[in-house]
Structures are given as C-alpha cells and as structure tokens.
Design a protein around this nucleic acid. Structure first.
Length: 264
DNA sequence: ATACCTGTTTCCCG
DNA sequence: CCGGGAAACAGGTA
C-alpha cells in the first residue's frame, strides 16, 4: 500500500494514541524490521512515555514521545499501522505493539521489508533531519527535477521518479500515474527528455502528489476514478482518457503500466 | 504449483 | 570515484 498519501493516511491511524501514556510494549522477537536496532531499547524507552505527535515525510514516519524519544517507521512493501483495542490480541506478523489504556498501536509487516528505528536525544534524529525536500512542500522545485534528469542521462525516467533522494514518497503506481499524465514513455532515457517535457512532468508530479493527498491522504481508499490507478493492476485494460491499449511490462526494474499509443 | 508484488539495500559491472 | 541494473530480502495471494 504505501506511497506518499497512503503513508500519511496510515500514520493517522495512530492519532487516537496522541497524548496517551504507554503501559505496555511488545516487540517481535525475530522480525527483520528491527535490523538497525535492539528490541530491548523499544521496551525500555517507550514504557511509561507519552505519544506526543506524529509526522510523515514521503514514505517515512516519525513519532515523537515524551522524554526526547523518537521512533522512525517505514512500511516497506507490506507494512500496516493498525489501531487496536486495549486488549488487542497479538498476531503472527505484529512487529511492534504499543499498548495504552484505551487502545493498542500496532505495526504489522508480514514481509518485513519495513524498518523501525528509535532515538533518544534532544534534537531530531539525523535520519529525519537529512531528508530531501518534500514533493508537497515549498522547497520542492523544477530545479530539483531538472538537475536529477541531467545527472542521470542513461536512466529511464520511470526509474528516476522512484529515486527517493529526489522524489520522496513517489512509488510504483504514482510514477506510472505521473508519466501517463505527462504523456511520456516510462522507458525514455533522461538524456532524451526536452525542457518542455520537464516542465510538464514537474506539473504532473505536483498534480498527482497533491491529488493523492486530497483523496487517499484524507479518506484512505483510492484516488479519483479517472486516474490510471484503477486500470493498472491487470492486463488488457484501456487508457482511461484515450481508450487505447494499456500494456504492463518491467521498466526500471518494476512492473510498469502505460499506454504506448499516447506516451512517447 | 508457480508467478507476482504500491520498497530498499547490496553487490557487481563498466 | 560514479551510475546503472539485477538480485536479495520474506511471506501472502492469485
């Protein structure tokens, strides 16, 4: 599930725990989401602390607890945040369960591609401080897109859009949505992209990112019904705008859905 | 059974 | 050193 707006919506699921004290912590004994951390530090640091605020940046989440404690969380491919009851019953793939008097805050991740970190210090952790400009923030600019394109002339544009150093939050379906709206062939090498195409691409990045936040980010669920999103998951569908054939093939290492008749 | 998967990191090559 | 691509990570689902 988790790209920009889905991450924002997932993050909001723990909102019920804001201002509430932690009365119990469970950490999965083997899950790979703890590859950077000791499980014990989660129990030691979180117990009796209070969840103060939550934030997202692209696909990254930050939860701030009392006592200068920060949790960083990434959902990977199959991670989920769940709001459970106070007597929530542990599931097989629960990586972290934070129990509060009214609710349980659950991070579940069967494939364990997600990641969780913890940090106790006055200032924000460096893994949060050093994130690139958000694609829905003031500091994102066409210069960022342009310089990325100039730097990676031999890379397909689809692969570039997935690079979180430049476009934090864009994932596989958003990249396809953006390229479809930009009428660009996903396999086109960055070196072949013209200035006017860059301009169009920049505007469509903003359109898709903001449109996703307005729909999915707020309500959960799916983006507007006119989007490519709804046609991309299986073979044989038609382009929502032109009714030409959609194809699905691997480009930039990922399954890509596009309309060859209108994307060049 | 077999293939596929909304993500990232690591390793290898040029 | 850098850029680019494939493999690996692991389990659920069709």
């Amino acid at each position: 599930m988790p790209e920009l707006a889905e991450v924002a919506f997932a993050c909001s699921k723990w909102d019920a725990g804001l201002g509430k004290k932690v009365i119990g912590v469970f950490t999965h004994p083997t899950s790979r989401v703890y590859r950077d951390e000791s499980r014990d530090s989660f129990v030691e640091l979180l117990y009796k602390s209070t969840l103060l605020s939550s934030h997202t940046h692209g696909k990254q989440m930050l939860f701030k607890f009392s006592g200068n404690i920060f949790i960083g969380l990434h959902l990977g491919m199959t991670g989920k945040l769940i709001l459970g009851p106070k007597n929530y019953k542990q599931q097989k793939h629960d990586a972290l369960v934070i129990i509060q008097s009214q609710n349980s805050l659950v991070f579940q991740d069967p494939r364990q591609f997600g990641r969780i970190r913890i940090h106790k210090e006055k200032n924000l952790p460096s893994w949060w401080r050093n994130l690139p400009p958000s694609i829905i923030g003031k500091n994102f600019s066409s210069e960022i897109l342009e310089s990325a394109i100039y730097r990676h002339k031999r890379k397909p544009i689809k692969a570039l859009l997935l690079d979180q150093r430049y476009f934090p939050g864009i994932g596989n379906w958003m990249a396809d949505e953006i390229l479809w709206r930009s009428m660009l062939n996903p396999a086109k090498l960055c070196g072949k992209i013209t200035d006017s195409e860059i301009n169009k691409l920049f505007n469509e990045i903003l359109f898709v990112a903001r449109g996703a936040m307005k729909s999915i980010g707020v309500k959960g669920g799916d983006p507007p019904k006119t989007w490519l999103f709804h046609k991309r998951w299986n073979n044989g569908n038609l382009c929502p705008k032109t009714k030409t054939a959609l194809v699905r093939e691997t480009i930039g290492g990922r399954t890509t859905c596009w309309a060859p008749a209108v994307q060049s």
